[in-house]
């Protein structure tokens, strides 16, 4: 995507996050489990950066550190040139409205006791100056419409929606604060394949419409390929390869990236002439 070269919206440099291991008796820290270390990347306005890796590679930790849910142990996170690494929770509040998150599990990430309208309005309750209270219902309905939900359902509860619809609610909730970056933590991995495409297309449309930037986390390479401009490949908390998405997919350099790409299941391997070794019957491919 041709973007004007300007200052990056989000800059992460040498990020390191470690989870302490505490002794059971005195809660003293006896060791630490380093989840990610030395992760560096930029996100420009309107750009999508993908984060790939297997389970436990630290993808979600990066996301949680960027949005301030875990404290980084080392490194710098800058948002629009401001160093937000050491921000207190109060200071972070102003950043949060620029940066939102869509969670992995649409069944767990929506409060079951709130209606869709209240779920979407929750951000306005926290940040009072975005939408005046008497406009909440109307604005929430507008957002529902925008993410492809029927606005008449605004009084329903999350359990009355399907997984894909719930994820749309989650996206509407993130959009409600009018952010510039949305962190998508495996937003479609819990969804049916057919619904995945719809949600991805929605994210794509919203990006075009609103000029959003995404930090897109996934273990599904086809999803990353479909959506991302640039890709970081994480392995055991380290970035093993990063660069232009197409380049990485066509010419992976690192062994781990090659292994990841080879692990993508192929629907009809016998049609894949390049890969004779995986022929199901052992016969040479035609």
């Amino acid at each position: 995507m041709p973007e004007a070269k300007s200052a990056p919206l989000l800059r992460v440099a040498h990020l390191k996050v470690a989870y302490p291991i505490r002794s059971s008796l005195l809660q003293r820290q006896i060791s630490a489990n380093v989840a990610v270390s030395d992760v560096t990347f930029d996100i420009n306005p309107g750009e999508t950066v993908g984060l790939v890796g297997e389970s436990g590679s630290g993808k979600s930790t990066v996301a949680r550190a960027v949005i301030g849910l875990v404290k980084p142990d080392d490194g710098v996170i800058e948002f629009e040139g401001r160093n937000i690494t050491g921000y207190s929770r109060k200071q972070f509040k102003s950043v949060r409205r620029e940066m939102q998150m869509v969670f992995q599990d649409p069944y767990a990430s929506l409060n079951p006791r709130l209606t869709v309208r209240d779920l979407i309005a929750e951000g306005w309750r926290v940040h009072r100056d975005i939408v005046p209270r008497d406009r909440w219902t109307a604005e929430a309905k507008k957002l529902m419409d925008r993410v492809g939900l029927n606005p008449d359902y605004s009084d329903r509860y999350p359990h009355q929606f399907s997984g894909g619809q719930r994820q749309r609610i989650g996206i509407a909730r993130a959009l409600a604060l009018r952010p510039k970056v949305i962190i998508c933590d495996e937003p479609v991995s819990a969804l049916d394949v057919s619904v995945q495409a719809q949600v991805l297309n929605l994210l794509d449309d919203l990006q075009e419409e609103l000029g959003l930037a995404y930090l897109f986390i996934s273990h599904d390479l086809s999803v990353i390929e479909h959506l991302c401009d640039r890709v970081l490949v994480l392995h055991h908390g380290h970035v093993v390869e990063q660069g232009n998405a197409r380049e990485i997919f066509e010419r992976p350099r690192h062994e781990y990236t090659k292994a990841l790409l080879a692990a993508v299941p192929v629907v009809r391997p016998w049609l894949d002439q390049a890969d004779e070794g995986r022929h199901p019957t052992g016969e040479p491919a035609a």
Binding site: L69, S109, L110, P112
Partner: peptide
């Protein structure tokens, strides 16, 4: 996750 989501919204 929904409590975390509220936290991510900036809830005090």
């Amino acid at each position: 996750e929904y409590v975390e989501a509220a936290r991510a919204l900036g809830a005090g």
